[in-house]
């Protein structure tokens, strides 16, 4: 198993604990791409003269395609049974995953086109690649998830795996007898109203999307640690 983040944030690395982790950025992927295509000297010259900036400005989507290409190469290497990628947020995930298709329309030859074709093949093969959408049991995240799910299926043609819903708190309502201390009552009423929102939004999600759901429980902490993640994972087994 390999965990990959795409923007150099330290978060994922600390959450997966001892599992192998890779941080992948577009400039690194582009430099590596040029080198593996026998353009090492050129890559240096391009970088030194700032032309790499211009190439990625002139051909938007190149950034995304070299990153997707690197993921495809990792997948093809057979070194990992599973590669889990922490992808971009909702709207940008669509742009990111559409990069291959977008480039095919403009690039009619050369190694980038081959790369784009390979990436499209991977994205379109449910045995090789699935997208797991992650959300919270609240109104806006659920709306966004549903929109993203339709856009990904229709425009990218990628197989959607189960939906993961984080931070679910659906315990039974706390009883608040008459005469309860005001602080205790206010805290209980707050908790009950949060649980009510969660139940309602889970129902709405179920109605809107015919995908399996994986519910992860609400953890009382402001910042998850690798231990918390291990416990959540154990709960799924």
């Amino acid at each position: 198993m390999l965990a990959v983040d795409l923007d150099g944030k330290p978060t994922l690395g600390t959450l997966v604990g001892d599992l192998p982790h890779l941080s992948l950025t577009a400039p690194d992927a582009l430099a590596e791409y040029l080198e593996t295509h026998g353009l090492r000297r050129v890559a240096k010259r391009l970088a030194a003269s700032g032309i790499i900036d211009v190439v990625s400005t002139a051909a938007p989507g190149i950034d995304d395609i070299v990153v997707l290409g690197k993921l495809k190469q990792l997948e093809r290497s057979g070194d990992h049974d599973l590669i889990v990628v922490d992808g971009p947020a909702a709207g940008h995930a669509i742009t990111f995953l559409l990069a291959a298709r977008g480039l095919l329309d403009t690039v009619r030859g050369g190694p980038i086109r081959t790369q784009a074709l390979d990436v499209l093949e991977m994205l379109g093969d449910p045995a090789r690649c699935q997208v797991v959408l992650v959300t919270l049991p609240e109104t806006t995240p659920v709306n966004e998830l549903v929109e993203t799910a339709y856009a990904l299926e229709e425009r990218v043609g990628v197989q959607l795996g189960p939906v993961v819903v984080n931070g679910v708190d659906t315990g039974d309502d706390l009883a608040i007898p008459a005469g309860t201390d005001p602080a205790l009552a206010a805290a209980a009423a707050f908790r009950n109203s949060r649980r009510d929102v969660h139940r309602r939004e889970l129902e709405r999600l179920t109605d809107a999307l015919a995908l399996d759901q994986i519910l992860l429980p609400h953890v009382v902490t402001a910042g998850l640690t690798a231990d918390d993640v291990a416990r959540l994972a154990a709960g799924l087994a």
Binding site: H37, L39, V42, I51, I62, V107, R108, G110, P111, I112
Partner: peptide, 17 residues
């Protein structure tokens, strides 16, 4: 220099650009 860029992004892209 443009030939080199063309190798990376494809000649057609370059011509369009």
């Amino acid at each position: 220099v443009l030939r080199t860029i063309g190798k990376v992004v494809g000649g057609d892209v370059l011509a369009d650009a």
